[in-house]
Design a protein around this nucleic acid. Structure first.
Lengths: 146, 146
DNA sequence: ATGGCTGCAAATGTTTTGCAGCAAG
DNA sequence: CTTGCTGCAAAACATTTGCAGCCAT
């Protein structure tokens, strides 16, 4: 896991260099927060966490949004939307997975199902789509909330 | 299809009565727009369409939002988020389906795969979730945009 | 040194809310 | 009548943008 995280940072460095852009502490911090996060975070939550954990950085919320936009564009992170507090982000360093979401308490269970992944590819090629990503959420009530 | 639509309107009447609420023209108009829509509409698009098709109704955008919230809550419509123009709504009177979305031109193909539906139920019960709905989007490039 | 990146504040776009009047039950 | 619903305008959010200065390269 730590290993995956270092890989992600290296990947960021590579992408930035390759695009002729600049490597800034801010983009790295945002990515690191997501690499260590145990939940899906909103831009605001990431911003607050940075102010808490790296108070000397004096980052602005706009920069967080710009970093998130950039990181998502280069596919290092992913966003999903559910509930009422805007986009939530997670790192792509974790294995790919989908989500079971409890609509009552907000609990999220991550899962992967190879069979579903295969069918998705089949459906895409049948429709002549070239898939870049997908997002699947099952909504319902978890055992505690039923 | 027309049949399904009438059913949906009846369903709305039933729900409203059962909840001791009031049956208003506005909620009906919003539902009807979605029943006849051939695409996923935003609140604003629905609002504009109403002003066009029922100019005498003098509906306000806030009412459209309130109607959409209500209709989604009672499960007559569904919202999905993609692209940059907020939530998009569609009626649930159509058969259940998932979406293939072209990230370049916005084209949407709807599909259903029984095998996937079955696996989803299996995953849910394995995790002791009681599923109420799900949402699945495959993102990529359609044949024209590759 | 040069051009991308940042922080700040202002602007934008979307959705929600307070309120007084209206209308369905 | 009573209470939910509506339209309007203002407010609340979430996200984006313009700009002057800063900092990687």
């Amino acid at each position: 896991m730590t290993n995956n995280n270092e890989q992600a940072i290296d990947e960021l460095k590579k992408i930035v260099k390759q695009k002729g852009l600049k490597y800034t502490e801010q983009r790295e911090i945002v990515l690191k927060i997501l690499l260590h996060a145990h939940a899906h975070l909103t831009a605001e939550e990431i911003y607050n966490q940075i102010k808490l954990e790296e108070p000397e950085s004096n980052i602005g919320i706009a920069t967080v949004y710009r970093a998130l936009g950039f990181l998502e564009e280069v596919n290092l992170i992913t966003s999903i939307v559910f509930g009422n507090d805007g986009k939530k982000y997670e790192s792509n360093a974790k294995e790919h997975h989908d989500h079971l979401i409890c609509t009552s308490c907000g609990k999220i269970v991550e899962f992967v199902d190879d069979e579903i992944e295969k069918r998705q590819d089949k459906i895409a090629s049948k429709n002549k789509f070239k898939i870049t990503s997908h997002s699947m959420q099952l909504y319902g009530l978890c055992s505690n909330c039923q």
